[in-house]
């Protein structure tokens, strides 16, 4: 464990808590893409299949359970909670995320560390996480204005991946055998997807204006 990875995991955890807080406190999920949340739930379930078989550390196990439960709780809230689901921007959240699922699974079958069920699902979860934010970014573009909690959520998600890139650089130099190419390359692509959002987020912060993404 290094400081970059710990910072990344904490940022990721905070991003999920910010989202849960927004939904719970405002009883609204406007501006949040249900499709992105469903993709994240799939990412965690597919990645943590080893939750009960491989014990790595107490921290690792706890965080996996927290991520799985929180992502499922968010999807449940947006789908089933009778008050929250009314504020879901169904007509704006139209990204065809099924294509992302099929493509990522196809790539995972071809490019993986070892052709086993667990490794294919792990690679699938890595690729899917890289593109999971797309429905959310499209929804933000469409809805124009970004309320600050949703903006902070996306910003923190980008920050978590940026910290992980520092973690891979650190591990590359520290460990003699670096074999995290699948995570590192996929993580780079993921962070690049946030770049434009970061740019507009920084502009709005600098001009102290409301965050407006160009339509």
């Amino acid at each position: 464990m290094n400081i970059f990875r710990l910072a990344g995991d904490m940022t990721h955890l905070i991003s999920v808590l910010v989202l849960l807080l927004k939904i719970y406190a405002t009883k609204s999920c406007s501006g949040i893409s249900l499709k992105t949340q469903e993709l994240y739930a799939m990412v965690f379930v597919a990645r943590y299949l080893d939750l009960f078989t491989d014990y790595i550390s107490f921290y690792n196990t706890v965080m996996k359970i927290v991520f799985i439960l929180s992502s499922l709780a968010i999807v449940w809230c947006m789908r089933m909670h009778r008050v929250v689901k009314r504020s879901y921007d169904k007509e704006l959240d139209t990204f065809r995320h099924n294509i992302l699922i099929v493509v990522c699974f196809g790539v995972a079958v071809i490019i993986n560390e070892k052709f086993t069920l667990r490794e294919v699902f792990w690679a699938f979860s890595i690729y899917l996480e890289a593109v999971a934010i797309l429905p959310q970014l499209v929804l933000l573009q469409r809805s124009g204005n970004v309320d600050n909690l949703t903006g902070q959520y996306v910003f923190l998600l980008g920050g978590y991946r940026a910290f992980y890139i520092l973690n891979w650089i650190y591990r590359y130099f520290v460990e003699q055998r670096f074999s995290r190419w699948i995570s590192a390359i996929s993580g780079l692509i993921q962070t690049a997807l946030y770049a434009d959002f970061f740019y507009y987020y920084f502009l709005s912060w600098k001009n102290n204006a409301k965050l407006h993404l160009p339509a």
Binding site: D50, N60, Y164, N167, R177, S183
Partner: peptide
């Protein structure tokens, strides 16, 4: 091939 190292990252 050697066993892929366990994925210790979240």
């Amino acid at each position: 091939s050697e066993q892929p190292q366990s994925h210790d990252e979240l």
